[in-house]
Design a binder for these strands. Structure first.
Lengths: 128, 128
DNA sequence: AATCATTATATGCATTGACATTCAATGCGC
DNA sequence: GCGCATTGAATGTCAATGCATATAATGATT
């Protein structure tokens, strides 16, 4: 059932490619030039801030990985960059010392809040 | 008009990300393991084969670049890889000797035709 | 408690891609 | 014909990513 033609399928893929490349490219440029953040860095901040309902929720690398389209190694390095920039902290988990608890710093939260409208505006431009 | 909520816009972006990463990742894996082709390499072969209605149409790098989401430099290197693999040829254009005419070799056409069903199957799986 | 498999994360290495620069061919103005 | 801006493509350099592997903490088995 639903025998979509090769053309239909191909057109959907083309449209996905167009939307993805156009949007991610502009997100990358805007976030970098206005807020010194790469797209995946912004996305990490976003997940961390989302998990923090109120103040200081903690997130493990594993959880983060599950919510992002990044390999474990790429994610580890992305967090390292954010840590060096003072936007997140890695704290060893006390219950399981293999794991890290990640947290936004105050600076991280500020940076994310500053960048959010930029991100939002680009998405709106491409999808509204 | 059409005041789509932030949520709508965000959901569309999420869906685009999901579709893009899921599909391109599987395309990459399948094409590589079954046909020793990266996705962008396959795409170059596809464009070249498409331009060749009958036998031996020629395509310039510039034209190729316009049809792909790749930088000029990345494209140049991708074509270099294909050339080394014997799948395409670069021939200096006679009218404008700065330019190259790209052509599929017989091996290139074979490889593309062999890989096409794999590509098609992945797209169908994700979009049908 | 010693061994072994598993889990959470980090790191070495190779690939890929983008940006800036370079080089050669072209064509324009004079 | 001679400079000079432009254009098509290749290359140097660097950042980001993925895969494989290393490290280290846990948990299970004996």
């Amino acid at each position: 059932m639903d025998p979509e033609s090769d053309q239909d399928v191909c057109a959907k893929w083309s449209e996905t490619l167009r939307a993805y490349h156009g949007t991610s490219c502009e997100l990358e440029n805007e976030l970098q030039s206005r807020h010194q953040l790469g797209l995946s860095e912004f996305e990490v901040l976003q997940v961390l801030s989302g998990h923090c309902g109120g103040a200081d929720e903690k997130v493990m690398m594993k959880d983060l990985e599950a919510e992002m389209y990044l390999s474990q190694s790429a994610l580890s390095r992305t967090v390292t960059r954010l840590e060096k920039a003072g936007l997140v902290t890695r704290a060893a988990c006390e219950l399981d010392r293999r794991a890290n608890h990640l947290m936004l710093t105050a600076a991280g939260r500020e940076r994310w809040e500053a960048a959010r409208p930029t991100h939002e505006a680009v998405l709106r431009k491409h999808f509204a």
